[in-house]
Design a protein around this nucleic acid. Structure first.
Lengths: 111, 111
DNA sequence: GCCTTTGTTCAAAATTCATTGAACAATTGG
DNA sequence: CCAATTGTTCAATGAATTTTGAACAAAGGC
């Protein structure tokens, strides 16, 4: 009934980094952190993209092990898997969130 | 004569994360760290992929601001831009390197 | 002057990713 | 029960990414 999540020890670093390496998903994670790690319902993130695309990005984060999704009625609440990520990759999430909140993400692209 | 590198304040978090979010590039960065942040010549990384593909991945790391490349004769030496990255995103690189070295990157993939 | 070493560039192919709209599913309020 | 709310799935498309091989370029050694 609830979506599937990888187990803590199946979370891979490159998957996590790839998940966070997308601007939309990084914004979602930063927003989650700003909201005290959640839970936050999907619709809240409509500020970033369309409903359909959001579903896609939230799935990516979930499958990478960055977030957890719990169904409640017609809504779904997303939380950051901070403890799990901290256990596996200490300091990573904190530094990413700090970086995302501090540096304004409107710099010139190298690509 | 030397390749181009982004300036410190043009380094963007999502670009860095995307650069590190590839297994080959993550391995290169971990190897650089293992070697004391470089300088390491390109050919050393042939342990990870082909010459041509290596050129591509090293360019990605360079363009994201993760590494610096300096030409010397017929060789090119790569170093980690640790100070620059630390200034911009404190603790990020360290946690990534620790994660890459600690957790063995042979876990099951969710995708 | 060559030939080797080291690495890049280019074009093509294969793969993966992101985005969209239409249709669907589940739950809940009236 | 009906309609609205919330979000997913599917198929299609366009866009980036990754990978490859062939050809090239720039030293340096002999």
């Amino acid at each position: 009934m609830n979506p599937q999540h990888p187990d803590v020890d199946q979370i891979s670093l490159s998957n996590v980094l790839a998940a966070l390496g997308d601007p939309t998903r990084l914004a979602i994670v930063a927003e989650l952190a700003r909201k005290g790690d959640g839970p936050v319902s999907c619709s809240h993130f409509l500020m970033f993209t369309s409903k359909t695309n959001l579903s896609y990005h939230l799935a990516k984060l979930r499958e990478a092990g960055v977030t957890r999704t719990e169904v409640s009625g017609t809504s779904r609440f997303t939380t950051l898997r901070r403890a799990d990520l901290d256990q596996r990759f200490p300091d990573l999430l904190a530094s990413v969130i700090t970086g995302a909140s501090t540096a304004d993400e409107s710099e010139a692209q190298t690509t």
